[in-house]
Design a binder for these strands. Structure first.
Length: 595
RNA sequence: GGCCUCGUAGUUCAAUGGAUAGAAUAGAAGUUUCCUAAACUUUAGAUGCAAGUUCGAUUCUUGCCGAGGCUACCA
């Protein structure tokens, strides 16, 4: 027996149309029957009218009659306008349930050969991570987990932007104003300390511009000629030349930042299989560019800069190498992509988790790789997501308007603690247990808040209105999971019998709805993988949980006198709990035993 | 200017071209001698505007209005 009733019906509907009208139908359109109509699955008749002439209601009736007679799982039907609503027998759902109930891996596909590399996070090392990075990290991590669950082998990676003028700015400011401060001497997290000097640089820079303008220098000129900026540029040149002092400072300050990042990643619950550093890879692309120049993919301008002409594809000309021969962002990305395929030959596709402000960049990058003749260029995907904006607009590190990642996580944990303390359900928990739980809930709220939104859409985050803990939220789902665990503990204590195969004569409406929702889990994972969308998993889980709470309210589980029904309901609850856990794992959210 | 996203209840989010556009939150009204009330039940409230394609459009096309982004020898 097939697990999905649609697959059964698909064949049978075609068979019916063929038997009744002698016409071969290419496809059949299904949808779940809306709540306000009777039935479980609905066949939409309208699209058939292109092939079968006639009255949709009549056609629906005829197909329905055929199905009822020929398909044992079909227990009844009704036709409303052009919609054929089909009722499926309880025994179908029960037998499905028995088949999957003890499979904790239900919906997950074992890893196959097909490997994909998912890049995410990829921060600059001159400042701490903020809410924008949080979205990136959560998205990348979750998509990687979803791809794994859909049967792909996944390598998580990032490219760390550890060199460039922005780092030199922090370094220079530290040299000038730092008085030898270190994370140890200040007690500050390394990334925070370095970030402070990035801000300090900007402040000094702006002051210098103001001074110059006061002296009558044009603003645009002042912006280019402020002494501190010129010095930062000089520092970058020294770095590229391998100046010992500069390189050593660079290593030292980056080391501070990495330590800070590591803490943030750990708290956020994300991880990586392999790291790439821009300082290692920025030269790689140059050879490829030289090659491409020979092949005529690129061309050289008089000043020596190298370009690609993409006007035929409706894009512009794009620079791939500066006139002084140094690499630009694009050069490095070309090199990095090629290096990754060399390092992981089984990789058959890469996902770049990068904000939508870089849509154009990736369009160009993929096109260049294709023109260079790399067949895998077709398998590259830019997971483009919307920015996280504040009510005041875009977050800007330099202006200090960012929502810091560490602070945010701490805030969320505090809020979870406050709510939990007020409810006072966990008096017997130790402080350590409480602490762990509050973090789980706080992060659950944050992660769900971000991941439930379609990645493409921008998120407006108002720090004044804290993230909800009620309604369509992570904690609501965690709470339901905890409730289920409570039932399971009690069922165990009271020795509720646990049959290998549950057996009940008929299903309560809510029970059937729950099984239907469980049935959707595998296809939801596949859909989420195809669309690179954790939001689909989040929405699915919410629907499941909402249905369960309604069931929980309406139907007594442990209070049921019929032992077979009681057993079934306990096992159904367990399956729902297990599905919540699996789904949330794909979002990187943990679930509690109690809360 | 050119190119790319996005406009859905007061607010935050849903809706493979399908039925009466779903939730949450804020608002109103209820449910705790009953398995955890971070819950459940009821109620009111929305597709920016205008055409077009279609049996049928929130979804596809075009125009307008509005928001954001890209258009650097920055990353």
């Amino acid at each position: 027996m097939l697990m999905n009733i649609q697959k059964v019906l698909d064949e049978k509907v075609k068979e019916a149309v063929s038997a009744i009208y002698g016409i071969a139908l290419p496809t059949v359109e299904f949808q779940p029957t809306r709540k306000d109509f009777e039935g479980d699955v609905t066949v939409v008749v309208f699209p058939m009218l292109r092939h079968v002439k006639g009255n949709p209601v009549q056609i629906g009736e005829q197909i329905g009659t055929y199905l009822k007679k020929e398909v044992s799982e079909v227990s009844g039907f009704n036709v409303v306008k052009g919609f054929l609503n089909i009722s499926i027998s309880d025994s179908f759902y029960l037998s499905f349930f028995n088949k999957v109930k003890d499979n904790d891996e239900f919906g997950l596909i074992a890893v196959q050969d097909d490997a994909v590399m998912v890049e995410y996070s990829s921060p600059n090392t001159n400042k701490p991570l903020h809410l924008g990075h949080v979205r990136n990290n959560l998205l990348g991590y979750s998509v990687a987990e979803i791809l794994k669950a859909s049967g792909k082998k996944v390598y998580k990676t990032q490219i760390i932007n550890d060199r460039g003028i922005h780092i030199c700015k922090s370094m220079l400011a530290w040299q000038r104003f730092g008085n030898g401060e270190t994370p140890e001497s200040t007690g500050l997290k390394g990334d925070k300390l370095v970030g402070n000097y990035y801000v300090a640089f900007d402040k000094a820079y702006k002051e210098e511009i103001a001074e110059l303008v006061a002296k009558g220098v044009e603003k645009e000129v002042a912006e280019k000629e402020a002494p501190i900026l010129l010095e930062a540029q000089k520092m970058l040149q020294k770095w590229e030349a391998g100046d010992e002092e500069v390189v050593s400072l660079w290593k030292r300050m980056n080391g501070w930042v990495y330590e800070g990042f590591e803490t943030t990643y750990k708290n956020l619950g994300v991880d990586f299989d392999t790291y790439y550093y821009e300082s290692d890879t920025y030269l790689l692309g140059k050879d490829v560019v030289a090659d491409g120049l020979e092949k005529g993919v690129f061309y050289k301008k008089e000043d020596g800069s190298v370009w690609i002409d993409l006007t035929d594809e409706g894009l512009d000309e794009k620079i791939v190498l500066r006139s002084d021969g140094t690499a630009v962002y694009m050069t490095q990305d070309i090199g990095t992509a090629i290096q990754r395929v060399k390092d992981y030959p089984d990789v058959n596709g890469m996902v770049y988790t990068v904000g939508n402000e870089q849509d154009y960049h990736f369009k160009v990058l993929f096109l260049i790789l294709k023109k260079l003749g790399f067949t895998w260029a077709d398998k590259l995907y830019h997971l483009s997501y919307g920015m996280v904006d504040l009510p005041s607009g875009k977050m800007k590190s330099r202006e200090g308007t960012v929502v810091d990642a560490d602070d945010l996580m701490e805030d969320m944990t505090q809020t979870a603690a406050a709510i939990s303390e007020e409810l006072g359900k966990l008096e017997d928990y130790s402080d350590a247990e409480k602490k762990e739980l509050y973090k789980m809930i706080g992060l659950g709220a944050l992660k769900y808040f971000i991941l439930k939104v379609d990645p493409k859409k921008r998120i407006l985050f108002d720090p004044k209105e804290s993230v909800d803990f009620q309604g369509n939220t992570g904690p609501f789902i965690q709470y339901t999971y905890a409730r289920i665990q409570s039932i399971l503990r009690k069922a165990k204590e009271t020795n509720v019998e646990r049959a290998a195969l549950v057996e009940v004569s008929e299903l309560h409406l809510k029970e059937k709805e729950l099984i239907k929702q469980i049935q959707l889990f595998p296809e939801t994972i596949q859909l989420a993988a195809e669309n690179y969308s954790p939001a689909l998993i989040a929405n699915y889980t919410y629907d499941l949980v909402k249905e369960f709470n309604s069931f929980y309210q309406q139907v007594s589980i442990l209070g049921e006198e019929d032992v077979k029904k009681k057993d079934f309901r306990v096992q159904l609850s367990q399956k729902v709990g297990n599905t919540i856990q699996s789904a949330f794992k794909l979002l990187g959210i943990d679930v509690p035993e109690r809360m």
